[in-house]
Design a protein around this nucleic acid. Structure first.
Lengths: 144, 144
DNA sequence: AATGCAAATGCGAATGATTTGCAAAAAGAA
DNA sequence: TTCTTTTTGCAAATCATTCGCATTTGCATT
Protein backbone atom coordinates (compact mmCIF):
# COMPACT_ATOMS: atom_id res chain seq x y z
CA UNK A 1 0.00 0.00 0.00
CA UNK A 2 1.37 3.39 -0.94
CA UNK A 3 0.64 7.06 -0.65
CA UNK A 4 0.03 9.15 -3.72
CA UNK A 5 1.51 12.60 -4.15
CA UNK A 6 0.74 15.42 -6.55
CA UNK A 7 2.60 16.69 -9.56
CA UNK A 8 1.80 19.50 -11.98
CA UNK A 9 0.89 18.45 -15.52
CA UNK A 10 0.50 21.07 -18.24
CA UNK A 11 -3.23 21.33 -18.77
CA UNK A 12 -3.18 24.30 -21.14
CA UNK A 13 -1.64 22.14 -23.83
CA UNK A 14 -4.29 19.50 -23.24
CA UNK A 15 -7.05 22.08 -23.45
CA UNK A 16 -5.71 23.41 -26.75
CA UNK A 17 -5.50 19.91 -28.11
CA UNK A 18 -9.13 19.33 -27.11
CA UNK A 19 -10.03 22.45 -29.11
CA UNK A 20 -11.22 24.57 -26.20
CA UNK A 21 -10.13 28.11 -25.57
CA UNK A 22 -7.74 29.21 -22.89
CA UNK A 23 -9.66 31.87 -21.05
CA UNK A 24 -8.76 33.83 -18.00
CA UNK A 25 -11.25 32.03 -15.74
CA UNK A 26 -10.04 28.65 -16.94
CA UNK A 27 -6.43 29.54 -16.36
CA UNK A 28 -7.20 30.65 -12.83
CA UNK A 29 -9.27 27.59 -12.00
CA UNK A 30 -6.62 25.27 -13.38
CA UNK A 31 -4.05 27.05 -11.30
CA UNK A 32 -6.08 26.50 -8.18
CA UNK A 33 -6.54 22.85 -9.00
CA UNK A 34 -2.92 22.13 -9.72
CA UNK A 35 -1.59 23.97 -6.72
CA UNK A 36 -3.72 22.44 -3.99
CA UNK A 37 -3.32 19.25 -2.01
CA UNK A 38 -6.91 19.07 -0.83
CA UNK A 39 -10.18 18.12 -2.48
CA UNK A 40 -12.16 21.36 -2.72
CA UNK A 41 -15.80 21.64 -3.74
CA UNK A 42 -17.12 24.11 -6.31
CA UNK A 43 -17.84 26.78 -3.72
CA UNK A 44 -14.36 26.57 -2.28
CA UNK A 45 -12.82 26.81 -5.73
CA UNK A 46 -15.08 29.76 -6.48
CA UNK A 47 -13.96 31.62 -3.37
CA UNK A 48 -10.31 31.03 -4.12
CA UNK A 49 -10.91 32.18 -7.69
CA UNK A 50 -12.62 35.47 -6.91
CA UNK A 51 -9.69 36.37 -4.72
CA UNK A 52 -7.62 36.44 -7.89
CA UNK A 53 -10.32 37.88 -10.15
CA UNK A 54 -13.59 38.89 -8.60
CA UNK A 55 -15.48 38.83 -11.89
CA UNK A 56 -15.44 35.03 -12.12
CA UNK A 57 -18.85 33.47 -11.66
CA UNK A 58 -19.88 30.31 -9.90
CA UNK A 59 -21.49 29.02 -13.08
CA UNK A 60 -18.16 29.18 -14.79
CA UNK A 61 -16.59 27.17 -12.02
CA UNK A 62 -19.23 24.49 -12.46
CA UNK A 63 -18.94 24.58 -16.24
CA UNK A 64 -15.19 24.31 -16.06
CA UNK A 65 -15.35 21.39 -13.66
CA UNK A 66 -17.66 19.57 -16.05
CA UNK A 67 -15.37 20.32 -18.94
CA UNK A 68 -12.30 19.10 -17.12
CA UNK A 69 -14.09 16.02 -15.91
CA UNK A 70 -15.11 15.11 -19.45
CA UNK A 71 -11.53 15.60 -20.56
CA UNK A 72 -10.45 13.27 -17.80
CA UNK A 73 -8.29 15.97 -16.23
CA UNK A 74 -10.04 15.85 -12.86
CA UNK A 75 -12.00 13.40 -10.77
CA UNK A 76 -15.24 14.12 -8.98
CA UNK A 77 -16.14 12.66 -5.60
CA UNK A 78 -19.31 12.85 -3.53
CA UNK A 79 -18.06 11.95 -0.08
CA UNK A 80 -20.86 11.29 2.38
CA UNK A 81 -23.42 12.39 -0.19
CA UNK A 82 -22.23 15.99 0.16
CA UNK A 83 -21.43 18.41 -2.67
CA UNK A 84 -19.01 17.25 -5.36
CA UNK A 85 -15.36 17.62 -4.49
CA UNK A 86 -12.63 17.65 -7.08
CA UNK A 87 -9.01 16.72 -7.53
CA UNK A 88 -6.72 16.66 -10.51
CA UNK A 89 -6.42 13.25 -12.12
CA UNK A 90 -2.71 12.89 -11.51
CA UNK A 91 -0.73 9.70 -11.81
CA UNK A 92 -2.11 6.36 -10.68
CA UNK A 93 -5.58 5.57 -9.52
CA UNK A 94 -6.06 5.78 -5.77
CA UNK A 95 -8.75 5.54 -3.14
CA UNK A 96 -9.62 7.78 -0.22
CA UNK A 97 -9.66 7.75 3.52
CA UNK A 98 -11.81 10.58 4.84
CA UNK A 99 -11.24 11.91 8.34
CA UNK A 100 -14.77 12.15 9.73
CA UNK A 101 -13.76 14.84 12.20
CA UNK A 102 -11.92 17.22 9.91
CA UNK A 103 -13.08 16.28 6.41
CA UNK A 104 -9.44 15.80 5.44
CA UNK A 105 -8.78 13.32 2.69
CA UNK A 106 -5.86 10.92 2.62
CA UNK A 107 -5.08 9.11 -0.60
CA UNK A 108 -3.89 5.55 -0.75
CA UNK A 109 -3.51 2.77 -3.24
CA UNK A 110 -3.62 -0.99 -2.81
CA UNK A 111 -3.03 -3.44 -5.62
CA UNK A 112 -4.35 -6.25 -3.48
CA UNK A 113 -7.73 -4.59 -3.11
CA UNK A 114 -7.88 -3.78 -6.81
CA UNK A 115 -7.23 -7.43 -7.62
CA UNK A 116 -9.88 -8.62 -5.20
CA UNK A 117 -12.41 -6.27 -6.74
CA UNK A 118 -11.70 -7.69 -10.17
CA UNK A 119 -12.18 -11.21 -8.87
CA UNK A 120 -15.47 -10.37 -7.22
CA UNK A 121 -16.86 -8.64 -10.28
CA UNK A 122 -15.82 -11.52 -12.47
CA UNK A 123 -17.48 -14.01 -10.14
CA UNK A 124 -20.71 -12.02 -10.41
CA UNK A 125 -20.46 -11.91 -14.20
CA UNK A 126 -19.45 -8.28 -14.55
CA UNK A 127 -16.60 -6.19 -15.92
CA UNK A 128 -15.64 -3.24 -13.74
CA UNK A 129 -15.97 0.16 -15.42
CA UNK A 130 -14.87 2.09 -12.39
CA UNK A 131 -15.17 1.81 -8.66
CA UNK A 132 -15.19 3.80 -5.50
CA UNK A 133 -13.68 2.87 -2.20
CA UNK A 134 -13.95 5.28 0.67
CA UNK A 135 -12.89 4.62 4.23
CA UNK A 136 -14.38 6.96 6.81
CA UNK A 137 -12.27 6.99 9.91
CA UNK A 138 -11.01 8.75 12.97
CA UNK A 139 -7.41 9.17 14.05
CA UNK A 140 -6.63 6.24 16.31
CA UNK A 141 -5.60 6.88 19.88
CA UNK A 142 -3.08 4.10 20.11
CA UNK A 143 0.29 4.59 18.40
CA UNK A 144 0.63 2.61 15.18
CA UNK B 1 -17.30 -13.92 -1.34
CA UNK B 2 -21.01 -14.37 -0.76
CA UNK B 3 -24.31 -12.92 -1.75
CA UNK B 4 -26.56 -11.32 0.82
CA UNK B 5 -30.30 -11.95 0.93
CA UNK B 6 -33.10 -10.17 2.76
CA UNK B 7 -35.10 -11.12 5.80
CA UNK B 8 -37.86 -9.28 7.63
CA UNK B 9 -36.99 -7.95 11.06
CA UNK B 10 -39.71 -6.52 13.26
CA UNK B 11 -39.18 -2.79 13.13
CA UNK B 12 -42.33 -1.79 15.00
CA UNK B 13 -40.89 -3.17 18.20
CA UNK B 14 -37.68 -1.26 17.59
CA UNK B 15 -39.57 1.93 16.94
CA UNK B 16 -41.55 1.56 20.18
CA UNK B 17 -38.35 0.92 22.07
CA UNK B 18 -36.91 4.09 20.58
CA UNK B 19 -39.96 5.94 21.90
CA UNK B 20 -41.40 6.97 18.57
CA UNK B 21 -45.01 6.49 17.60
CA UNK B 22 -46.27 3.88 15.21
CA UNK B 23 -48.22 5.85 12.66
CA UNK B 24 -49.97 4.79 9.53
CA UNK B 25 -47.41 6.40 7.20
CA UNK B 26 -44.55 4.81 9.10
CA UNK B 27 -46.14 1.41 8.98
CA UNK B 28 -46.66 1.68 5.25
CA UNK B 29 -43.13 2.92 4.57
CA UNK B 30 -41.60 0.18 6.71
CA UNK B 31 -43.67 -2.34 4.84
CA UNK B 32 -42.34 -1.10 1.53
CA UNK B 33 -38.78 -1.20 2.82
CA UNK B 34 -38.98 -4.69 4.24
CA UNK B 35 -40.72 -6.18 1.25
CA UNK B 36 -38.46 -4.96 -1.53
CA UNK B 37 -35.25 -6.37 -2.91
CA UNK B 38 -34.13 -3.18 -4.63
CA UNK B 39 -32.65 0.09 -3.40
CA UNK B 40 -35.38 2.68 -4.00
CA UNK B 41 -34.96 6.42 -3.64
CA UNK B 42 -37.34 8.68 -1.73
CA UNK B 43 -39.47 9.41 -4.79
CA UNK B 44 -39.89 5.73 -5.58
CA UNK B 45 -40.86 4.96 -2.01
CA UNK B 46 -43.30 7.86 -2.12
CA UNK B 47 -44.98 6.55 -5.24
CA UNK B 48 -45.30 3.07 -3.83
CA UNK B 49 -46.70 4.55 -0.63
CA UNK B 50 -49.42 6.69 -2.18
CA UNK B 51 -50.68 3.61 -3.98
CA UNK B 52 -51.57 2.26 -0.56
CA UNK B 53 -52.63 5.56 0.98
CA UNK B 54 -52.72 8.60 -1.24
CA UNK B 55 -52.61 11.05 1.65
CA UNK B 56 -49.00 10.31 2.49
CA UNK B 57 -46.68 13.20 1.72
CA UNK B 58 -43.17 13.24 0.34
CA UNK B 59 -41.92 15.15 3.38
CA UNK B 60 -43.04 12.30 5.58
CA UNK B 61 -41.12 9.87 3.45
CA UNK B 62 -37.98 11.97 3.86
CA UNK B 63 -38.57 12.44 7.58
CA UNK B 64 -39.11 8.75 8.05
CA UNK B 65 -35.96 7.86 6.15
CA UNK B 66 -33.96 10.18 8.38
CA UNK B 67 -35.53 8.69 11.46
CA UNK B 68 -34.84 5.14 10.38
CA UNK B 69 -31.30 6.01 9.39
CA UNK B 70 -30.60 7.51 12.80
CA UNK B 71 -32.00 4.37 14.41
CA UNK B 72 -29.69 2.34 12.23
CA UNK B 73 -32.61 0.51 10.66
CA UNK B 74 -31.71 1.50 7.12
CA UNK B 75 -28.66 2.49 5.12
CA UNK B 76 -28.42 5.39 2.75
CA UNK B 77 -26.41 5.31 -0.48
CA UNK B 78 -25.63 7.99 -3.04
CA UNK B 79 -24.61 5.93 -6.04
CA UNK B 80 -23.02 8.00 -8.78
CA UNK B 81 -23.86 11.17 -6.90
CA UNK B 82 -27.56 10.69 -7.62
CA UNK B 83 -30.42 10.96 -5.12
CA UNK B 84 -30.16 8.93 -1.93
CA UNK B 85 -31.25 5.33 -2.22
CA UNK B 86 -32.20 3.22 0.76
CA UNK B 87 -32.19 -0.34 1.94
CA UNK B 88 -32.98 -1.97 5.23
CA UNK B 89 -29.95 -2.66 7.38
CA UNK B 90 -30.45 -6.39 7.44
CA UNK B 91 -27.93 -8.95 8.59
CA UNK B 92 -24.28 -8.59 7.74
CA UNK B 93 -22.56 -5.65 6.20
CA UNK B 94 -22.19 -5.84 2.44
CA UNK B 95 -20.97 -3.79 -0.49
CA UNK B 96 -22.53 -3.02 -3.85
CA UNK B 97 -21.99 -3.71 -7.49
CA UNK B 98 -24.03 -1.31 -9.60
CA UNK B 99 -24.97 -2.24 -13.15
CA UNK B 100 -24.17 0.94 -15.07
CA UNK B 101 -26.65 0.07 -17.80
CA UNK B 102 -29.70 -0.79 -15.72
CA UNK B 103 -29.00 0.78 -12.32
CA UNK B 104 -29.52 -2.64 -10.73
CA UNK B 105 -27.66 -3.23 -7.51
CA UNK B 106 -26.05 -6.52 -6.57
CA UNK B 107 -24.93 -7.05 -3.00
CA UNK B 108 -21.81 -8.92 -2.07
CA UNK B 109 -19.57 -9.40 0.89
CA UNK B 110 -15.87 -10.17 1.09
CA UNK B 111 -14.04 -10.76 4.34
CA UNK B 112 -10.74 -10.44 2.55
CA UNK B 113 -11.51 -6.92 1.42
CA UNK B 114 -12.77 -5.95 4.87
CA UNK B 115 -9.53 -7.19 6.40
CA UNK B 116 -7.41 -5.31 3.89
CA UNK B 117 -9.31 -2.12 4.60
CA UNK B 118 -8.61 -2.49 8.30
CA UNK B 119 -4.94 -2.99 7.60
CA UNK B 120 -4.74 0.05 5.39
CA UNK B 121 -6.51 2.29 7.86
CA UNK B 122 -4.31 1.08 10.67
CA UNK B 123 -1.19 1.74 8.63
CA UNK B 124 -2.40 5.31 8.09
CA UNK B 125 -3.14 5.76 11.78
CA UNK B 126 -6.90 5.61 11.61
CA UNK B 127 -9.79 3.54 12.94
CA UNK B 128 -12.52 2.86 10.41
CA UNK B 129 -15.96 4.16 11.38
CA UNK B 130 -17.61 2.97 8.23
CA UNK B 131 -16.72 2.55 4.62
CA UNK B 132 -18.16 2.43 1.19
CA UNK B 133 -17.14 0.18 -1.65
CA UNK B 134 -19.00 0.44 -4.91
CA UNK B 135 -18.11 -1.37 -8.10
CA UNK B 136 -19.65 0.07 -11.24
CA UNK B 137 -19.75 -2.55 -13.95
CA UNK B 138 -21.32 -3.96 -17.06
CA UNK B 139 -22.43 -7.52 -17.64
CA UNK B 140 -19.48 -9.29 -19.21
CA UNK B 141 -19.87 -10.84 -22.64
CA UNK B 142 -17.81 -13.91 -21.97
CA UNK B 143 -19.35 -16.67 -19.87
CA UNK B 144 -17.96 -16.86 -16.34
C1' DA C 1 -3.51 46.36 -35.27
C1' DA C 2 -8.39 45.85 -36.91
C1' DT C 3 -12.22 42.37 -38.13
C1' DG C 4 -15.39 38.56 -37.66
C1' DC C 5 -17.45 34.85 -35.59
C1' DA C 6 -17.83 30.98 -32.73
C1' DA C 7 -17.03 29.86 -28.04
C1' DA C 8 -17.20 31.26 -23.29
C1' DT C 9 -18.83 34.25 -19.68
C1' DG C 10 -21.80 36.45 -16.10
C1' DC C 11 -26.10 37.06 -14.61
C1' DG C 12 -30.28 35.58 -12.90
C1' DA C 13 -33.87 32.41 -13.28
C1' DA C 14 -34.91 27.34 -13.36
C1' DT C 15 -34.29 22.72 -11.63
C1' DG C 16 -34.10 18.71 -8.54
C1' DA C 17 -33.41 16.85 -4.05
C1' DT C 18 -34.22 17.67 0.45
C1' DT C 19 -35.54 20.34 4.67
C1' DT C 20 -38.34 23.35 7.43
C1' DG C 21 -42.27 26.19 9.69
C1' DC C 22 -46.62 25.85 11.07
C1' DA C 23 -51.41 24.83 11.85
C1' DA C 24 -54.22 20.75 11.88
C1' DA C 25 -54.59 15.74 12.82
C1' DA C 26 -53.48 11.53 15.18
C1' DA C 27 -51.11 8.56 18.89
C1' DG C 28 -50.92 6.91 23.22
C1' DA C 29 -51.09 7.70 28.32
C1' DA C 30 -54.27 8.81 31.93
C1' DT D 1 -63.00 10.35 26.37
C1' DT D 2 -59.65 13.87 27.34
C1' DC D 3 -55.12 15.77 27.41
C1' DT D 4 -50.53 16.31 25.90
C1' DT D 5 -47.10 15.53 22.71
C1' DT D 6 -45.68 13.79 18.44
C1' DT D 7 -46.42 13.49 13.68
C1' DT D 8 -48.38 14.91 9.51
C1' DG D 9 -49.45 17.49 5.10
C1' DC D 10 -48.79 21.50 2.83
C1' DA D 11 -46.28 25.19 1.02
C1' DA D 12 -42.40 27.83 1.19
C1' DA D 13 -37.33 27.74 1.93
C1' DT D 14 -32.74 25.90 1.08
C1' DC D 15 -28.81 23.87 -1.23
C1' DA D 16 -26.20 22.25 -5.07
C1' DT D 17 -26.22 22.56 -9.73
C1' DT D 18 -27.73 23.71 -14.46
C1' DC D 19 -29.60 26.59 -18.11
C1' DG D 20 -31.06 30.63 -21.23
C1' DC D 21 -29.52 34.47 -23.14
C1' DA D 22 -27.42 38.87 -24.12
C1' DT D 23 -22.70 40.37 -23.90
C1' DT D 24 -17.83 39.70 -23.97
C1' DT D 25 -13.66 37.42 -25.32
C1' DG D 26 -10.28 34.30 -27.71
C1' DC D 27 -8.08 33.75 -31.61
C1' DA D 28 -7.71 32.83 -36.60
C1' DT D 29 -7.63 35.83 -40.38
C1' DT D 30 -6.97 39.92 -42.82
Amino acid sequence: MKHALNQKPDYEKELRKAGVRITRPRRIILDILTSTEDHPDAMKIFHRAIEIDDSISLSTVYRTMNLLEEMGAIHRHAFNGGPSRFEQAHGEHHDHLIDVDTGDVIEFQSDKIEKLQEEIARALGYDIIHHRLELYGRKSKRPE
